[in-house]
């Protein structure tokens, strides 16, 4: 690690809202007066294909836009998780959408010092999405921790399928603790201003998703990371 800045990479399939989530997070940091850099990874394909988003936020001048290892690696699809493996090291925390990806098999030999937590199962007991879930890659480098969050399922059953990425955004922001929830809310509202104007209900929906994600991060962290040691 060459700086105190937090490095985050989010990966998913085109259309999952990966870039928007990363962009809003960086915007929130900027509004707080922090140094922030966001860069999408893009290929020739206009639609589809894996989509990676890189964010660096903190108080130090940001060096190169891309980095070798992320403090937080977020995977919303199996294919992107494969590409994301290169960004993991023993300091990385992995967050994945457990309603889209099968939880990884816990095996110390394979993944090292690994745990995974999911949110209390009551709301997701049905596991309706199980049939569609993709396989978690068998091999993972040694990482610090793995968390699964059924963001898509939560979005689909409780809010709206379109806000799964906002749940993830809330969780990512909650994990990094580099920005306040209020800043992310403000950045989110700014970003959605046009849509909210047309459909005011969207505001509440998105803010709920964000808050739920944020709180989930808190609950996940409580179980693992000692106070003061923020991933």
């Amino acid at each position: 690690m060459t700086s105190g800045n937090r490095r985050i990479v989010i990966g998913g399939e085109g259309g999952q809202g990966v870039q928007a989530a990363a962009d809003i997070l960086a915007q929130a940091a900027f509004e707080e007066g922090k140094k922030a850099l966001y860069i999408p990874n893009f290929g020739i394909e206009q639609r589809g294909g894996t989509s990676l988003a890189f964010v660096q936020i903190g108080t130090e001048t940001v060096g190169s836009p891309k980095f070798e290892h992320a403090h937080l690696v977020v995977a919303l699809s199996s294919r992107s998780l494969e590409r994301l493996q290169g960004y993991m090291n023993e300091d990385s925390i992995i967050l994945f959408d457990s309603s889209l990806l099968e939880p990884p098999q816990v095996s110390d030999e394979v993944v090292g010092r690994q745990t995974f937590n999911t949110i209390a199962p009551e709301t997701f007991a049905e596991r309706r999405l199980t049939g569609q879930r993709q396989k978690f890659p068998e091999m993972l480098p040694k990482v610090r921790a793995v968390f699964g969050l059924p963001a898509s399922e939560m979005a689909q059953t409780k809010l709206h399928p379109r806000v799964a990425n906002i749940i993830i955004l809330g969780t990512v922001a909650g994990f990094t603790k580099m920005v306040t929830l209020e800043s992310v809310e403000a950045a989110l509202e700014k970003r959605l201003a046009h849509k909210i104007e047309r459909d005011p209900a969207l505001k509440d929906l998105n803010l709920k998703a964000l808050e739920w994600g944020w709180q989930s991060a808190g609950r996940m962290l409580e179980g693992l990371v000692p106070a003061g040691e923020i991933p």
Partner: peptide, 9 residues
């Protein structure tokens, strides 16, 4: 391309 596509202050 990085500079074109990245966002910063």
């Amino acid at each position: 391309g990085y500079q074109a596509q990245m966002r910063e202050p």
